[in-house]
Design a binder for these strands. Sequence first.
DNA 1: CAACTATGTGAC
DNA 2: TCACATAGTTGT
Length: 716
Amino acid sequence: MSRDDEQRKAPAEEPQGGEQLALIRDSVRKAKVPRAKPRTWRGAALAKDRPVAKVLVDKGPVHLDKLWDYAVPAEMDAEARPGVRVRVRFGAGTGRVREGRREGGGLLDGYIVDRVAESDYRGPLAAIAQVVSPEPVLGPGLLALCRAVADRYAGSLADVLQLAMPKRNVRAESETSPPPLPPPGPPEPGSWARYPAGPGFLEALAGGGTPRAVWTALPGPHWPDEWAAAVAATLASGRGALIVVPDGRTAARVDAALTRALGGAGRHVLLTADLGPEERYRRWLAVSRGSVRAVVGTRAAMFAPVRDLGLVGIWDDGDQSHSDDHAPQPHARDVLLLRAVHEKTGFLLGDLGRTVEAAQLVENGWARPLEADREQVRAVAPLIRTVDEGEVARDAEARAARLPTLAWQTVREALNRGPVLVQVPRRGYVPRLACERCREPARCRHCAGPLEARDADRLACGWCGRAETAWHCAECGGARLRASIVGARRTAEELGRAFPAVPVRTSGRDHVLDTVPDRPSLVVSTPGAEPVAEGGYAAALLLDGWALLGRPDLRAGEDALRRWLEAAALVRGQEDGGLVVVTAEPTQRPVQALVRWDPAGYAARELAERSQLGFPPVSRMAAVAGPGEAVAELIASAPLPEGTETLGPVPLPPTPPGRPRRPGDPPPGARWERALLRVPPGQGRALAAAVKEAKALRLARGDKDPTVRVDPLDIG
DNA sequence: CAACTATGTGAC
DNA sequence: TCACATAGTTGT
């Protein structure tokens, strides 16, 4: 078959008009085209006005992080507006047809970013194959945000778009969104009046200002309503608001508060993953179209294209779920920080505690602390008591329930007044079992991974999964491990026997209870799954504090305090008899911070210490993981900023079986190493840029490894 | 020096 | 990613 024959066949095989492009690719080769105006296909009519579309190709190799010019056929002129989804042919041999089949150069998804009159590209332009839908989903603001996130995290724009853009759904898109409601009036300060700067913050928002605050929320049930008031104030100024919370349960609580505050459901939407793709897209479109101006949602909502944003907010920024599992693993706090700066909005970071990152925002003056007076705190916080973890109860009943005397007495007394919360760390939450005698961590004899308690008395390696039946300490020869954690279920059983007259409920990973009634009951929960008690818990026990504090993680202390505060905040104030008993070493700083209910002080000290030691977030880091050679090459080729330190590389443990692989985890069977790059304060952007450049260079050669993680969380 | 494989580059 | 060009390598 001659080439001419092949070409003649092409249009018949491909119904899409755009395929005529195949005709010119062979006849007009790039090399033969002298410098000239952009040319396109032969004969076919192009859009009269601005016939060149700048297209962002969404999938495919990452170094395609640039815009490509495509011709806009006349018949697509009206629909091919900036922001719409398109399909384009891409790749060498585009559109060439042999034996009736297209060869190479598949159809790729993309977005039109802009329409221009001329192209810089000297060759013939291919035409847009198809406008997928006329809905402009990727506006300039969202695109700029995605770019900023990609840069900040040394990731590709395509990866970020994957996180930011919802999947298209035809039915949702074909519907019209309801017309926007007029802005509400400014809200009353309500419980914000408990914070000296609270009413002023609301007024600033309502008046069109952009206040920035780190808010240490008072314990108790009011914070969802306080979020709602902040949103209402922003709406009152004619602007939009976006609040990101860690999980669907919290989102539902804030959503309910918004419905109360805004007098109905028409002014805001809840955006969470469990809505399902269709409903999610429907709501996302309502936001994108400007029909709704206020959003509360989980992580992915951080990209929601709220029109004329006036406030971004995040609740509980220390929660791990704010950090995305997908490359480049952006953290909601930082994405919202970028939005606050780029879109010139107000910013509110709310938390019962305070992360070191939040403390840094306060310390460098970017945000103001929004806190209640000590007096106010004392009034609403429960009384906190510590009991030594080593204490063995004297009475037999307490011993049977494995409770220290004070804990036992507290439960018995409080059960007369209402529900009692018992927080038990998740089993397997402690990666580090240790020798009872010398505290040396118990390690696997095969791979040196940490041993974990699988059952009451079965041990297994957390890395390779091999069972250990006869452990003894490599240091001192001891054969006993420090008490392992008793899981929530077993604790519930034991407490049920000890208090037979009282119902015992559990809330944990699989069964998370939302609320419990205001009646005497025992509620055993793992951290983060605590149900809300309608009238507040009469008391709480925070058991096995050593387990939370003993994790081999830079954030162990901060995280333990966070989880304790979260549980303790559900307990009635001490004026109403609320009491919390925590079993932990009372000299430890997080424990003292809990007793004094002073998360801000704790975070400030922690920040100072990390600053001194050159730890994040003051110094910034990037983790580079991959095969040893690849790691070394990437680091060598990166134009790293002055003062960069390379820590490691060290061998990376295999991905624990059972856990889904995340970026940065070695593939099964592979031996990977990880190096940490550390830069002095102020060099974070330069570090990300350098690593991104080196990565792009390797990627152009087809090397996928290594993976890069900016601001790694899991540095021991 | 043809036939084959490794390496590199451009894609609109 | 993937086709294609080109440089480099082998074999007779």
